[in-house]
């Protein structure tokens, strides 16, 4: 859940009112969704990653689809694997919902409850290199072990809507 501000609108200064009037003239403000979009491990082909923090031996495709509302973020951590035998559930539970997601000062944090019950914490930095945006960080397991992960933006929030990455975890 995002960190919500106080209910209602209470301009604290004339500067805020002036900004409002300017906004009236220019139209409604619409903050850019900085982390909203589709993020995937990218190479010539989508690459499998090993994430020890998730489960030792896991190797699969990882993607994040998200959208941002102020500082609040909502999204899904997709984990695709077609070969993992330890927990059959992986075959049937290929994603986890991001909870307590927040984006502030270029940093995205969230927790996710995996289908095995493991709760991982995501800590990522938003980086811009040349014309590509990256989420570079790690997933931290309950025992403190972590797995580094770098995702590149492959689509914006519109792609998430169009390709229906906003339906959550679907059972096969």
């Amino acid at each position: 859940m995002g960190n919500n501000t106080e209910p209602g609108f209470a301009p604290r200064s004339s500067g805020a009112l002036l900004g409002l009037m300017l906004a009236l003239l220019l139209g409604a403000c619409d903050a850019r969704d900085e982390v909203g979009g589709l993020w995937q491990v990218q190479g010539p082909q989508p690459q499998k990653v090993a994430l020890e923090a998730l489960e030792p031996g896991f190797s699969g495709l990882v993607a994040i689809s998200s959208d941002q509302y102020g500082q609040d973020v909502a999204g899904t951590l997709f984990l695709f694997t077609d070969s993992y035998s330890k927990i059959d559930a992986w075959a049937h539970c290929p994603c986890a919902y991001m909870e307590k997601s927040e984006f502030s000062s270029g940093r995205l944090t969230f927790t996710a409850s995996l289908c095995s019950g493991t709760v991982v914490t995501g800590e990522f930095e938003l980086l811009l290199e040349e014309e590509a945006e990256f989420l570079q960080g790690r997933l931290v397991g309950p025992d403190g072990t972590s797995s580094n992960l770098t995702l590149v933006r492959t689509g914006d929030a519109g792609v998430v809507r169009d390709e229906e990455w906003d339906r959550g975890c679907q059972l096969p």
Binding site: M1, D67, D166
Partner: peptide, 19 residues
């Protein structure tokens, strides 16, 4: 709504129903 999950997930989707 101020809940981001109610904004992100499509209505009646598994994510919406869950979150």
């Amino acid at each position: 709504s101020r809940d981001p999950d109610c904004k992100f997930y499509q209505p009646d989707s598994p994510g919406y129903n869950a979150m």
